[in-house]
């Protein structure tokens, strides 16, 4: 028992869908549970942070961390796990790139607080109360974690050894990653444990993509009845597949939904959103400025689409944030 490698699974700003994905390993999870000693997994088992604090440096073989970092408690736990672990795996789109919650970075903390604690129609807050990191009540001090100005991907806060993207990551890649650790067959540090090719290369609709695409009007997926076999872009529906890493199993495509980008950029690209713009531009017809502008004006929420899962790791940060 004592010789088994120790594994910690932890959530930061996470919806716990990543925990669900680990549970979905089904039988394989039993093999994993046999082979390792799980020392922390808040969603499934009861552990105390204190027992982690008491551990030696590097005592944990692998920390699987999912979720982005939005507050000081998450930062503290990420740093604690980094200190105690030999390997840190950023698990899922939120830990890797910030995830959907990272879309909040289009707004300032002040905007968010104004809405959530004041302006939202269902809020009644006559005293304009806001969360405080310290409040004294009857001579006692209550504390809350500090809500940061922005959402951060995990590697903004600690060094990360491996990345496993997805929202959530698919079972085959999770099993590969865990067994690679157990069998000591890991690639060089810093690697993303997923194929390096773009999604289009793996997409069953790729062959239906015409050689030359000329889109003059964009439609959103809910506005049309999309053809189930044809490339989405060929139908004038945004699909970020050309700029996104494959490995997801094309789940969305197979359920007639265009790719939103949860696997992040391919190797060698940091900003999948910006990369996608280059390929998208070449598909827009209209050889005069006015027509191009008209087509582009018609794209709803382009920035939200390009950065649906990756805004916190985009090359640009929101200007009003500093």
């Amino acid at each position: 028992m004592a010789d088994k490698p120790k594994v910690a699974i932890y959530w930061l700003a996470s919806c716990a869908g990543c925990d669900e994905a680990i549970v979905d390993l089904n039988e394989a999870i039993l093999m994993v549970a046999d082979a390792v000693d799980i020392v922390l997994w808040p969603v499934a088992l009861d552990f105390k942070y204190e027992s982690i604090r008491k551990m030696e440096k590097g005592e944990i073989t692998l920390a699987i961390i999912h979720g982005a970092v939005r507050n000081s408690e998450q930062e503290e736990m990420a740093k604690l796990l980094r200190e105690k672990s030999q390997l840190v795996l950023a698990f899922g789109a939120c830990a890797c790139f910030g995830g959907t919650a990272g879309l909040a970075n289009f707004r300032s903390k002040e905007d968010i607080f104004n809405w959530v604690y004041q302006d939202a129609p269902t809020v009644v807050n006559p005293n304009m109360n806001r969360p405080q990191t310290e409040t004294s009540v009857n001579g006692n001090t209550l504390t809350l974690p500090e809500f940061f100005e922005r959402v951060h991907p995990l590697n903004d806060i600690i060094s990360v050894d491996y990345y496993l993207p997805g929202c959530p990551p698919p079972p085959d890649l999770i099993a590969n990653a865990v067994f690679a650790v157990l069998e000591d067959k890991l690639p060089p540090r810093g690697t993303t444990l997923a194929p390096s090719k773009p999604l289009c290369d793996a997409c069953p609709r790729n062959r239906s993509k015409p050689l030359r695409l000329e889109i003059s009007e964009f439609k959103r997926i809910h506005e049309v009845e999309a053809n189930e076999d044809q490339c989405f872009l060929a139908q004038g529906i945004l699909c970020i597949g050309p700029a996104i890493r494959s490995g997801c199993g094309e789940t969305c495509i197979r359920t007639n939904t265009p790719c939103r980008g949860c696997f992040g950029p391919v190797d060698g690209v940091d900003d999948a959103g910006a990369k996608f713009i280059s390929s998208l531009a070449s598909l827009i017809s209209a050889d005069n400025e006015e027509e191009s502008q008209k087509t582009i004006d018609g794209i709803a929420d382009l920035a939200g689409y390009c950065y649906r899962f990756s805004l916190p790791s985009a090359s640009l940060k929101h200007k009003n944030k500093e």
Binding site: I277, L280, A281, A303
Partner: peptide, 17 residues
Amino acid sequence: QARKRILLLRKILKEFG
């Protein structure tokens, strides 16, 4: 192509403030 890229990027930049 350059012009279309710029038009698209300008739309994105706005969202970044």
